[in-house]
Design a protein around this nucleic acid. Structure first.
Lengths: 128, 128
DNA sequence: CGGCATCCGAATCGATACTG
DNA sequence: CAGTATCGATTCGGATGCCG
């Protein structure tokens, strides 16, 4: 199959848009990408993830993990210890997201530097 | 400066999470990535974008374009024709997002194929 | 430890109608 | 053409408390 480069789909921008939205749905919201991000470093337990993601509540973490599992991005394993231990791990699909995450990360750093220099004390209001 | 690879920040997952969330904020929501996507092919006018993105309303398009402009991702040019013509174009920062978009696109296609085969008639309920 | 249930305000977003 | 204004439905997401 041909690679999914921009040039290949230039002919039909709309179908291209649909593909992006499709992808977007898999990890939309405030928390999914950060969760995936922490799991790229390996298996983690519920509490570990919670600790690494500032301000996430158990409610949201639980909800998002369930969502990600349903979408085939992570897998959940329960160990019958006492108290129970649960480990979350990226699936193969999930691991392939590292490409996306790295791209986002790299752009984020560049973009931030660019904005610091040129414009935008506007961000202040969002940071606060 | 060292490249922003995952390995480089493994030491501090939390700061890494913050960087991702930061990036995420720049194009969160249902429409921003698709808008950026269509603009990767070149300058476009309001109506052109609207036509290429299924189901977007003028309200949302207007709002998101404004947001993207404030974030330094696109630029807006008004031509004093009659009726007025407005063109939107990616800035340098915006163009650099192509890396992210392509990564998302590629993953989306792979992931879709994988899910078709293995699991998930669940998506049906979301597609409907 | 790893959650779930409930409540509730805030933010998002779609539909529709209108304007310079 | 390129938007804006208003309304209302839906969803998101934080706080809190409880459970096996």
């Amino acid at each position: 199959m041909a690679a999914a480069t921009l040039k290949n789909i230039q002919k039909c921008p709309t179908s291209y848009v649909l593909a992006i939205q499709d992808t977007l749905n898999a990890f939309q919201g405030k928390w999914k990408m950060p969760i995936i991000g922490t799991l790229l470093f390996g298996k983690k337990r519920f509490k570990e993830i919670e600790r690494e993601i500032p301000k996430i509540t158990p409610r949201m973490l639980s909800q998002e993990l369930k969502d990600l599992e349903m979408n085939g991005i992570i897998s959940r394993t329960v160990y019958a210890t006492s108290p129970v231990t649960v480990e979350y791990e990226l699936t193969k699909s999930g691991k392939q997201l590292s490409k996306v995450v790295e791209a986002m990360l790299e752009w984020g750093l560049q973009h931030r530097r660019a904005n610091m220099l040129e414009l935008l004390p506007i961000l202040q209001s969002k940071t606060a």
